[in-house]
C-alpha cells in the first residue's frame, strides 16, 4: 500500500453557480521516501492537490488515503489531528506565528503532540541545527530574512518526524540562490531521514532536484515521470 493514494478524485469549486474543475485524477500513488515535485502553470491545480493530500481540503468525490487513513468525511478536529500526526506543512510565505521565536515556532507542533520537555528540547535543537539556524533560535520571524523564515518552517515541518512533508511553492518568495539552497536542504532531509516530500513549483531550476515530476495542466495530470 502506497503512503498516499488518490482514487477517482475530483475537486470542483462552485462559484456563482459556475462549476470550476480544479483537479481530478483516476489513480495516483506516492510511495514512502519519494521526493515529488508537482509542476504546472498557474491555476493548474498544484495547490489544490497539496491541500487535498494534507487534509486541509477534501475532495468533491473520490477517496484519498494518507498513511492508511481516509481523509474524506473527517470532522474539523479529526482533520486537525490527522494533519498534526502525519503531515508537515511549508507554505509559500508568512508561515510562522509572528509572536513566537524560531525555537517556539518549531516547538509548537511538539507541544500539540504532547511530547515531553526533555525530548522536545532535543528535537527542536536538532531540527534547527539541520536547517542551519542554530544561532537564530531566539529570533522572532520579523528579525529574520525570508529564506531564514522558510528554513524555520522546514524545521517545524520535520521536527515531529511526520511521514509526509507538503510544501506549496516554498521558494516562490525567495531569490533563486536562496530558493535553490532551500530545495537542496529538503532533498538532503529526504535522503537522510527518508521523509516523503511533495512540493509544488513552476521554477525549472528547482524541478531539477526532484526524482519524480508530476505535471498538471487544467487540473489534470499530463505527465508523471521519474528521473
Amino acid at each position: 500500500m502506497a503512503l498516499i493514494e488518490l482514487t477517482n478524485v475530483r475537486k470542483t469549486y462552485r462559484t456563482d453557480g459556475m462549476e470550476l474543475h480544479a483537479f481530478s485524477a483516476d489513480r495516483m500513488e506516492i510511495d514512502r521516501g519519494e521526493f515529488v515535485c508537482v509542476a504546472g502553470p498557474s491555476g493548474s491545480g498544484k495547490t489544490t492537490i497539496l491541500n487535498l493530500i494534507g487534509a486541509i481540503d477534501c475532495p468533491t468525490t473520490g477517496s484519498i488515503t494518507v498513511a492508511g487513513r481516509e481523509t474524506r468525511g473527517l470532522s474539523p478536529s479529526d482533520a486537525a489531528r490527522m494533519r498534526r500526526d502525519t503531515v508537515g506543512f511549508i507554505f509559500q510565505s508568512y508561515n510562522l506565528i509572528p509572536v513566537l521565536t524560531a525555537y517556539e515556532n518549531v516547538e509548537y507542533v511538539l507541544l500539540l503532540k504532547g511530547v515531553k520537555q526533555v525530548e522536545r528540547r532535543q528535537r527542536v535543537s536538532e531540527a534547527l541545527v539541520s536547517v542551519g539556524l542554530k544561532d537564530m533560535m531566539r529570533k522572532l520571524p520579523k528579525e529574520m530574512s525570508g529564506g531564514q523564515q522558510q528554513r524555520v518552517a522546514v524545521a517545524r515541518a520535520i521536527v515531529a518526524a511526520p511521514p509526509i512533508v507538503l510544501a506549496d511553492e516554498p521558494t516562490a518568495n525567495l531569490d533563486s540562490v536562496t530558493g535553490r539552497h532551500l530545495v537542496a536542504l529538503l532533498h538532503r532531509l529526504n535522503l537522510e531521514q527518508g521523509t516523503t516530500f511533495v512540493f509544488s513549483s513552476h521554477d525549472p531550476v528547482i524541478i531539477e532536484y526532484a526524482d519524480r515530476i508530476i505535471t498538471l495542466q487544467d487540473g489534470r495530470v499530463i505527465s508523471d515521470r521519474r528521473c
Partner: peptide
C-alpha cells in the same frame, strides 16, 4: 485570517 489558517493547518484543533 491567514495566520489562524496556518495555525490550524499545522494541526491545532478548533478547540485550541
Amino acid at each position: 485570517f491567514r495566520e489562524l489558517g496556518i495555525i490550524s493547518a499545522i494541526g491545532t484543533p478548533p478547540s485550541g
